[in-house]
Design a protein around this nucleic acid. Structure first.
Lengths: 387, 387
DNA sequence: CAGCTGCGTGCTAACGTTAGCATTGCTGGA
DNA sequence: TCCAGCAATGCTAACGTTAGCACGCAGCTG
């Protein structure tokens, strides 16, 4: 079948006699290229030209028929579609892109997909974009700005239509330049140099509420375990923690902040172990990342620490296991789903309309504190401010 | 700077006098295209031609210099690279692909990225491929074969280099056709029509061992809660469950299989509720998917069911919360990481070499049973075979 | 000094698709 | 009868990059 179609190329000389040019030897005969000599049976990708040759029409007609151009007769359209389907034609987006069309790929640049926070976002994003015909490219930075740069280079080379990024602490200058050329949206974390298009939660308020809850219960030695101040979210959460203590009328040394890698479960485990054995151990603990929470819960379970008797705990995020952990974990619930949907809708709108009115700064509510059983007023034995 | 470079195009007539052809009016002058009239300040993507114009060399030279072609002098290479960097040139992979080069994108087609099983695979895959310069495209099917087809169409149009797919139960015929044109690898689930390249765990053996563990403890009323038989993995796991019972010398009605949507946490919750209240309630339960396990654990916690006193449970997969759930969940540990790494390596090798020797059927070990506290011999009150 | 070699570079075509313009054949009105 | 107008389709260039071939020049040998 293919062979037939291909040999047709050499035998059809459309309108050779009617066009009266001098050197007509070169007219109406498609030059024979390397493609034509492909061996029978070799895997071969069907193009519009293959369809055109088979039907004895031009590539333009095929292209227009497939694009449902009103100028093409219904009968031709039918034949073209039929042939395309039979031959297994699949349009080549690379070629389409070269004609100025944009790609249908949106990239999501995140630290780690295993973090359920990000996988939920990826899922919602993907779901929302599929309806618009977009595909999702996934890039993991592992919070390493050089990996981030590597990915952004690839994404630029691939001419992705848009990028949703959870930036690293201090992106490379080249990353900033690359992002400028693509519609993009910062998610959760916000870095000034990457523009003002941002979508995230009010980290300050979230931590402020969580801490205030503990302070209201009478805790006077509260620890916070979270990401580094270098990270915008880290700084905001820490600020929320400190502000809540201050607003609660507690002295500066009532709060103890342990900052470290936010994506490390191990770090959570080790830090809580250290906290518990230190003198003046806190009676309450607020957490500032999901991974740290996972580590802390594991360690507390392993050591059999009485919660909330010995230690009150407020977690971060809400994982399936949090509800059945010990007495149930009181935790900072984040509106992940709404956030992801918001992101997707913003980007879809941005990609479909001209960049006329890019309203800066978008943020959603800080999420609510989910009250379960892991917090209570401090035990009598743990005398407040015994130092 | 850009304006200077552009105006150069009109003023440079390289070697016009030396080439002595008759109608030289058309020689050495690049035709002016729409691109050249772009307004000053309009966002503009740099191409090799822009660099060539600025340096007064040809596009070929620029292309070769950037590709580090040995024929180009070191000095020219330096100048080109410098200019490219200054102007922020980023190669256009769509154009490169049109010259027969393959894309650097590999797609992962899975039911749902929120399932930690798949997110781990995505992570490992991404990590392994980044080193080789590949990007990861993510497609979620939600176990819907029409969504699967939609995604495969897009992936084909985008000419992805390879596909790793967890197929739905019965893929559309077109999906099969589309996959045939792309190097692909089935993951976990295996559908015969999609070829023999497969990577997964020995589901039969995994469930056999888990069930045998319960039988060895003396349970005679064991329930299995898993995905539908229609799914290859569902069928295998069910078979493993049944075989273990038979090998344990139990009658056919000792086992009770509850099959349903494997990705539904709710289904797990509801089914275990039904199981517990039914007459002849089982004394042991084996699970056949992560999501179902999550639902079951939640419900058992909520109802305060005594495990392993009232019910022994063997879970599926190993999530962070499984170790701290109740007495600790005995569960079927899967070698996810090795599996993902194996996939990545196979595909990378497949993409770099000609498809000469595609060894069919690859599988990894069934994983080990992780023993914790959720299984024990049945309680005296639960008399064996009281019916 | 002619011819050869090799180095460095330029020209051109090709990849698959699409948009603008040209061309053909036909119908209907002047 | 002839041409305007229309419907249907063809031709061509263009997108950005790369590979093959051609070309000019310098240095070398005979």
């Amino acid at each position: 079948m293919l062979t037939l179609a291909r040999s047709c190329r050499q035998t059809c000389f459309p309108a050779l006699s009617t066009t009266e040019r001098d050197e007509s030897a070169n007219v109406g005969i498609r030059k024979v290229t390397a493609r034509d000599q492909s061996v029978e049976g070799t895997p071969y990708v069907i193009t519009t030209r293959d369809i055109a040759d088979r039907l004895g029409v031009s590539v333009s007609t095929v292209g227009r028929a497939l694009a449902d151009d009103p100028r093409i007769s219904e009968e031709t359209k039918f034949r073209v579609r039929q042939a395309a389907s039979e031959m297994g034609y699949v349009g080549n987006r690379a070629a389409r892109m070269m004609r100025g069309a944009s790609s249908n790929v949106v990239a999501l640049v995140i630290p780690d997909i295993r973090n359920s926070f990000y996988s939920t976002i990826a899922h919602e994003l993907s779901k929302n974009m599929e309806a618009e015909g977009f595909q999702l490219m996934l890039s993991e930075t592992d919070d390493d700005r050089t990996a981030e740069l590597r990915h952004l280079r690839e994404l630029s080379a691939n001419r992705v239509a848009g990028i949703i990024i959870v930036p690293t602490a201090r992106p490379h200058g080249e990353s900033v330049k690359l992002l400028r050329a693509v519609p993009h949206l910062q998610l959760l974390r916000r870095h000034p140099s990457l523009g003002s298009q941002w979508f995230g939660v009010d980290d300050h308020e979230a931590l402020r509420r969580a801490t205030a809850h503990l302070v209201a219960q009478g805790h006077t030695r509260v620890a916070y375990l979270g990401g580094p101040e270098e990270l915008p979210t880290g700084a905001e959460r820490l600020r929320g923690f400190r502000d809540a203590l201050r607003e609660g009328g507690l002295p500066d040394d009532a709060g103890r902040a342990e900052l470290g890698p936010p994506s490390s479960v191990d770090h959570g485990r080790e830090t809580v172990r250290r906290l518990l054995t230190s003198k003046d151990a806190p009676t309450a603990l607020v957490l500032g990342s999901i991974q740290l929470t996972l580590g802390v819960l594991e360690e507390l379970s392993r050591q059999g620490v009485k919660v909330p008797g010995e230690l009150s705990v407020v977690g971060f995020g809400d994982e399936p296991g949090f509800s059945w952990w010990g007495p149930g974990l009181t935790t900072i619930g984040l509106p992940i789903q709404e956030m992801a949907t918001g992101c997707a809708l913003w980007l879809m709108r941005r990609l479909k309309t001209k960049p006329s009115h890019d309203g800066p700064y978008t943020s959603v509510s800080p999420g609510s504190l989910i009250l379960r059983g892991s917090t209570a007023p401090p035990d009598g034995r743990a005398a407040p401010r015994s130092s």
